[in-house]
Design a protein around this nucleic acid. Structure first.
Length: 438
RNA sequence: CGGGGCGUAGCGCAGCCUGGCAGCGCGUCUGCUUUGGGAGCAGAAGGUCGCGAGUUCGAAUCUCGCCGCCCCGACCA
């Protein structure tokens, strides 16, 4: 993409409503624009990141054996009356009335919807287990939206739902998602720590939250520093092998890690030596639940068993806040200059800075590099701007690599390769720069 | 939902107390000079001062009402 074609409204000054760093950087980097409180438009740069996160989440869901569906944003109130949640959910649910005066709602979550789909089509234990997920916009009318996309009213969420014959089998599904989340967050460049959690209004009794440790987090966390040391991606996982999956879950749940709602000071001090105690803040980026027959019972999701009986299926739900992750990743990865994208979610794989636009040697070299870096989806800053503007902008939007082309080096066939994360700059030949980014 | 604050040019803000030509910086546009870390000079465009009433000869400014947005706390992916 050429910078002169890209709609990328970067800002020097930050709008005053933004307080936390990720929100400020997202506005400055032209990623989003606020439409109203807690509701955002996604501009090209922001949308590219959102899509990359979405893709990684999808790949890991599929890998764990889940199947993607897509349910509507607008749901019927009747469905929610059947589960009893239409009245329970309270003012956080956005209620809508259509032209025929039917009560509708903008879905804050989809347990009812998915359970109805499942109940319509599945009758036999032979069809179990199943995991169905979708990635869809939700709306929760938060009393106080804040922190930009980290706590919006409208947000993009991956929610998965598992259906099993009994508790033991449901635990296997739960474990699969547990491991899938560890892999997902690791691929996003995040150190996410699973913590025992309350299951909240969704109900049930087996639940973990996944938090990344960050000072700007909304949750208080207490954990063993060992939690963030695991290298999940180095670990071989075969989802077809329940024991192997179970072993991962056990390894990751062994160290003490709890949010304040489950925290037990005495247990913490007994389990964790002082030098390994982490007491700080965390951002919740995922939450998984087992809730048994809470929805399958009232909504009639029952299957016949091998013995000829009938049983309500055991369910679980598993959520990842995809739009929240955009902010969370920035919270975890930025510096004074701006965002520092992990390779896996960067909006463009490399930036090309032409320091002397209009100089035939520089222009020629940049065009050459631009074409040869095609596989990296490069962003070529071809604006007739001064060097300082281009450097500042490129640092702000945080692409992991910058190829700097200027008159000083180009006569000798040299360019500068800068690593955004470390700030390290090397003057090397054009060829070796291309080789490094191959 | 309790407490606090803010709405003035695309963005950041001053002006308001003490009513009297709507300003500054950044950005944008034009020209010249510059050109390796957010350039300099000269010129230009850009505003229902959130909305509605009221007071007044006169309201961005004072009064009342409404709307929007932000921050702190209690709740949530």
């Amino acid at each position: 993409m050429r910078r002169t074609h890209l709609f990328l409204p970067t800002l020097k000054d930050v709008p005053s409503e933004a307080q936390i760093i990720s929100h400020r950087l997202m506005l400055r980097a032209g990623m989003v624009q606020q439409a109203s409180a807690g509701i955002y438009s996604w501009l090209p740069l922001g949308l590219r990141v959102l899509k990359k996160i979405e893709r990684i989440v999808r790949e890991e869901q599929d890998r764990a054996g889940a199947q993607e569906v897509l349910m509507p944003t607008v749901q019927s109130a009747d469905l929610w009356r059947r589960s009893g949640r239409y009245d329970d959910y309270g003012p956080e649910m956005l209620r809508i009335r259509d032209r025929h005066e039917r009560d509708m709602l903008y879905g804050p979550t989809n347990e009812e919807q998915i359970t109805e789909i499942f109940a319509t089509h599945v009758r036999s234990y032979r069809d179990l287990p199943k995991m169905l997920y979708h990635i869809q916009w939700k709306f929760r009318d938060e009393v106080r939206p804040r922190f930009g996309v980290m706590r919006g009213r409208e947000f993009l969420m991956k929610d998965n739902y598992s259906f099993d014959l009994d508790f033991e089998s449901a635990c296997l599904s739960y474990n699969r998602m547990f491991v899938s989340y560890l892999r997902t967050f690791a691929r996003l460049g995040l150190k996410a720590v699973p913590m025992e959690a309350e299951s909240g209004p969704i109900g049930g009794n087996l639940s973990h939250e996944f938090l990344i440790l960050a000072d700007t987090g909304e949750s208080s966390v207490y954990c063993d520093r060992d939690c963030v040391e695991f290298d999940m991606l180095a670990r071989e996982v075969n989802y077809e092998n329940p024991k192997m999956v179970q072993a991962v879950v056990e390894d990751f749940t062994r160290p003490y890690a709890r949010t304040d709602e489950k925290h037990d000071a005495a247990a913490f001090e007994a389990a964790v030596p002082p030098e390994r105690r982490y007491v700080g803040r965390g951002i919740e980026v995922g939450h998984i639940f087992y809730f048994g027959a809470k929805y399958s019972e009232p909504l009639g999701a029952r299957v016949t068993t091998a013995g000829g009986g009938e049983v309500a299926v055991h369910m679980g739900s598993y959520g990842v806040g995809i739009s929240r992750l955009v902010g969370a990743i920035i919270e975890a990865s930025h510096d004074e200059q701006g965002i520092v994208w992990p390779e896996s979610v960067t909006p463009y794989g490399a930036g090309i800075i032409n320091l002397r636009q209009g100089d035939s040697r520089c222009d020629g070299a940049c065009e050459d590099i631009y074409a040869k870096l095609f596989h990296r989806e490069p962003l070529y800053d071809d604006r007739p701007e001064r060097a300082g503007v281009k450097f500042a902008d490129m640092d702000l939007i945080g692409l992991p690599w910058q190829v700097v082309v200027g008159p000083r080096g180009i006569d000798r066939g040299r360019v500068e390769l800068k690593c955004r994360a470390t700030g390290a700059r090397e003057e090397i030949s054009l060829e070796s720069a291309l080789a490094r980014l191959a």
